[in-house]
Design a binder for these strands. Structure first.
Lengths: 145, 145
DNA sequence: CGTTATGTAACCGGAACGGTTGCATATGAC
DNA sequence: GTCATATGCAACCGTTCCGGTTACATAACG
């Protein structure tokens, strides 16, 4: 939902003082409730990716240039360090050396796997996302422009 | 939990006709209920990674050599194609081109990210896991053996 | 035949998430 | 000032998921 909202903002292009989009407009495209969108936008605002303006004529705009926002920022802002695969909450039997060794090894492996995912998401800026989106929205014709 | 169980099986080393480990033994190390372990082992059995034997003297043993089982097999067996990040279940508004484009692009990105994770997990065989575990269990002394 | 162990269904409890309502707050137009 | 608009946020509901637990059937060994 966060990428959906940011994709709409990037395509709409407004930034800074423009009118922006309302949570109701975004919710219409995502097919959910405006409050749900506002909850996601609150995470993005706390991460400094968007700025919101209240009141009539308000809405949401990007806080930075689309080339300076990556999907890795979005992942970090929304999921806030949620592990790719979680260990058993109770933890292994402290008296079992194998159990402790498995937990330790899995922690390192999880770190490596998450680094790969974050690197892949870091390759995608909002600017690139916008280009990909317009390529998908206007399938023919971009070879001429 | 699946990796924990398989790590114990690899360290214990029995294969084929040996006695194997019981779900109660594994559950003791994981600190959970034997039924929970059996549910995980059922997935691994369906994937052909372990074989189970009922009755007195029964238990679980690896179905293949530890060098021929990777954590990627485990991931596939247990999580059964669960997506790394899920799209909004309702799907975007079919009338919004941006919404459809975002969903399509994210599907491709998800495929790339999952391929990276599966490749990383595919590097780790149970044989390598067992070596790593004994390195962690016997910190000094393996430079001499 | 009894003991041991898996296989599986059923149910419970808590956590997480989207959906919804309600209300406070801020902003712009009149 | 007043009203319409829009976000911010808390509270609550229903669903889903997952681990934990019990219960019972089944199978193997002595």
């Amino acid at each position: 939902m966060a990428v959906h909202a940011l994709g709409m903002l990037a395509c709409q292009g407004a930034r800074g003082a423009g009118p922006g989009l309302t949570s109701a407009t975004i919710a219409g495209s995502v097919r959910t409730n405006p409050v749900v969108i506002r909850r996601v936008l609150a995470d993005l605002r706390r991460a400094g990716l968007v700025t919101t303006r209240r009141g009539a004529g308000g809405g949401v705009v990007l806080a930075r240039a689309p080339s300076r926002i990556t999907l890795r920022c979005v992942w970090d802002a929304v999921d806030a360090g949620e592990p790719l695969f979680a260990p058993h909450p109770a933890g292994p039997d402290p008296g079992c050396p194998t159990g402790r060794a498995v937990a330790g090894y899995l922690a390192g492996l999880r770190g490596r796997a998450e680094a790969l995912v974050r690197a892949e998401l870091g390759k995608v800026t909002l600017a690139r996302l916008q280009r990909e989106l317009s390529r998908r929205i206007h399938p023919q014709g971009d070879h001429r422009a």
